[in-house]
Amino acid sequence: SKTSNTIRVFLPNKQRTVVNVRNGMSLHDCLMKALKVRG
Rank of each mutant, 00 (worst) to 15 (best):
K14I: 04
R22H: 12
R22L: 14
K14T: 07
L31M: 08
S26D: 02
S26H: 05
D29R: 06
G39D: 14
S1G: 13
T17N: 02
I7D: 05
H28P: 01
Q15P: 01
S1R: 13
G39C: 09
N13S: 10
S1P: 15
K36I: 10
L31P: 00
D29H: 06
R38Y: 05
H28D: 13
S1C: 12
V18I: 13
S4N: 11
K33M: 05
L27R: 01
R16C: 07
K14W: 06
R22N: 15
S4G: 10
P12A: 02
H28Y: 11
L27V: 15
F10S: 13
N5S: 15
K33L: 05
R38G: 00
M32R: 07
K36D: 06
F10T: 05
N5I: 07
K33E: 01
T17R: 05
N20H: 11
R16H: 11
P12M: 05
N20E: 06
H28L: 10
V18T: 14
H28C: 14
S1H: 14
T3I: 11
V19I: 11
P12T: 03
M25L: 12
V21G: 14
V18A: 10
H28S: 03
V37E: 02
L35Q: 01
T17A: 06
I7F: 09
V21E: 00
G24V: 15
R8H: 06
T6L: 02
V18G: 03
P12Q: 02
K14S: 05
V21L: 07
V21S: 06
R22F: 03
L11R: 00
N5Y: 10
M32K: 08
T3N: 08
S4V: 05
L31Q: 00
M25V: 13
N20D: 06
S4R: 14
V37A: 08
G39E: 04
K33N: 04
L35A: 05
P12L: 01
L11V: 04
G24D: 07
K2R: 10
C30R: 03
S26G: 09
K36M: 06
K33D: 03
S1I: 06
R22G: 09
I7L: 12
Q15E: 15
